[in-house]
Design a protein around this nucleic acid. Structure first.
Lengths: 118, 118
DNA sequence: AAGGTATATACTTGTCAAGGAATATACAAC
DNA sequence: GTTGTATATTCCTTGACAAGTATATACCTT
């Protein structure tokens, strides 16, 4: 499928959404993880996620109490290209690097992972 | 220099600006050429060019009656990366391809070129 | 059923941007 | 100087979006 470039850039032109897209292009995350990484209020994260979903860049799946967001796999080549460009650009940026640092810490606690043992 | 990614995407999230950036990454153009290629009203083109200039993506140079716009050479790696991503994405798109067709036709008549002979 | 947690949806307010109409500026040619 | 051409700026209206407060929904647990 082919996605409108303008829509892609509209989604990318807000810092919060950009951070979310950057994270999600590393792999799916649930809302509470995204919140924890971004350190932004629930409503802010939720609304930007809704924006991304409404425009077809991400899709969701419920897992119990949690909702897991991921990049829409079938979205478009254009999105893929732009997300990989974002990965390149983000390397030099402090904010994105700190997000990745928090992502690494948070992953093991993920609500998506089975309880370790019992 | 390093340019804010959000600013870059804000500049790219309007179709008219995107077409302008796509054209300018092929080389400098004067306003009247851009207008002729985009087939959009003067004021619209002019205002989007002003937006791009205000945000540092392009710079201008006067040549007699004409004003020549070009991508700000020293802008940033990020801009370069995104513009080359745009070139890739634009290949599949009818609008951008038609712009290039008109660009090819218009170039010989360019106001930047010396009068052929006399 | 009741209470808790995770997430989303109104509703409001302020800001910014887009488009158009009219006008202004800068230069060129005479 | 006057006129013409190219380009920019001002003013206006309209619509989109960002952020916050409060409230609702969906699921889980007991």
């Amino acid at each position: 499928m082919t996605m409108d470039l303008v829509v892609i850039y509209k989604c990318m032109c807000d810092r919060t959404r950009l951070r979310i897209l950057h994270l999600l292009s590393r792999g799916p995350l649930c809302v509470c993880e995204i919140q924890a990484i971004l350190e932004e209020p629930q409503i802010k994260v939720s609304k930007h996620l809704a924006y991304l979903r409404r425009h077809g860049l991400v899709r969701t799946e419920r897992d119990g109490n949690n909702i897991i967001y991921r990049i829409a796999a079938d979205a478009s080549d254009r999105l893929d290209r732009n997300l990989s460009c974002l990965q390149d650009c983000a390397q030099e940026d402090r904010i994105f690097r700190e997000d990745l640092r928090r992502l690494a810490r948070i992953e093991p606690l993920s609500c998506r992972v089975e309880p370790a043992s019992r």
